[in-house]
């Protein structure tokens, strides 16, 4: 399949390991990523708070770029996914159209509203399909207990276009099953990572992150995995602060979703940027049991 690749800001900066892993998985599964150096930031929810109309226009421009190329958009960040699909939703309001369309006309970038925005999780579980992913697994992650952490904006606010139940999603756990890992169910998996207020009131944000990490750990998770690089910053980059906020050591490795898929498909830790994490991923990998039925690595 061929799709417009919208990496988002963080995967091009502090979260480059997410971009590395996405490219690895795309190549392995035959997903052609079409790149557009014209794509801008989605506003990350913050521009939306300062000026909603401007933010819809910014994302209409992004979506218009893909529409011209006749492609749907692939995101690898829950927040990008949320903001781009929210723009689609808000453009259904004629009053919003009336404000945004003249500005888009001025830059020669009209947007009709035909582009679907899909997160990598949806592409892997729906378009490629769990069976096809499973068939490509070379090194199943047998024995690794993983707490999926969805990230708010992949699920909420739910719309008619939403892929699944916002409060009881299953797709991430199904994907973990397909790559041989053992999904851990815990309440925190659909909760907030605290990131949006990390720079507003850090201590509160750290406590919120700690709450979800503790929940995963108390349910037996060896590691957590997230489809959102902002969650990754909060859970991995600031895990030391989360530990300090509640006085408990977690040592909880946090994976980006495509990193775990890539590992199961045969990638090395270096190819997918695991050494870039602040919490070492090694202890989690040590839980993976060799699988006698797996095909030898090429």
């Amino acid at each position: 399949m061929k799709i417009a690749y919208y990496p988002g800001c963080v995967a091009q900066e502090s979260g480059r390991e997410l971009d590395m892993a996405t490219r690895w998985v795309a190549k392995a599964l035959g997903i052609e990523l079409v790149e557009f150096p014209t794509f801008s930031c989605c506003g990350s929810g913050f521009v939306d708070e300062a000026n909603l109309t401007l933010n819809v226009a910014i994302n209409a421009r992004n979506l218009g770029i893909a529409e011209r190329a006749g492609l749907d958009v692939l995101t690898i960040c829950s927040t990008c996914q949320g903001m781009l699909s929210l723009a689609n939703h808000r453009l259904e309001d004629p009053a919003m159209r009336a404000r945004v369309d003249p500005a888009l006309a001025k830059i020669g970038m009209p947007y009709k509203g035909t582009v679907k925005v899909k997160h990598l999780l949806e592409v892997l579980t729906r378009d490629i399909g769990l069976g096809a992913v499973k068939a490509r697994v070379r090194r199943p992650l047998t024995g690794l207990k993983v707490g999926a952490f969805y990230g708010c904006h992949l699920l909420r606010p739910s719309q008619e276009s939403s892929m699944e139940s916002p409060e009881e999603p299953r797709s991430f756990e199904d994907l973990l099953d397909a790559i041989g890992a053992e999904p851990v169910m815990y309440r925190g998996r659909v909760m907030c990572c605290g990131f949006p207020i990390l720079f507003v009131k850090g201590e509160t944000a750290n406590r919120i992150a700690a709450r979800q990490i503790a929940d995963a750990k108390d349910h037996g998770a060896h590691a957590m995995a997230t489809p959102c690089p902002l969650c990754h910053i909060s859970l991995d980059g600031y895990q030391n602060k989360a530990e300090a906020a509640v006085g408990r050591e977690f040592d909880m490795p946090i994976f980006h979703l495509p990193q775990l898929v890539a590992l199961a498909l045969g990638a090395t830790p270096e190819e997918i940027g695991l050494p870039r994490h602040l919490v070492p991923a090694g202890p989690a990998l040590a839980h993976i049991r060799p699988d006698p039925t797996a095909a030898p690595r090429a």
Partner: peptide, 22 residues
């Protein structure tokens, strides 16, 4: 407040280069 400064700062930040300068 830090919250409103963050929202305004983010908006201005993106205006400069189109991508976030973390």
């Amino acid at each position: 407040e830090p919250g409103s400064r963050h929202a305004i700062g983010f908006k201005e930040n993106i205006r400069e280069r189109g991508l976030l300068q973390e």
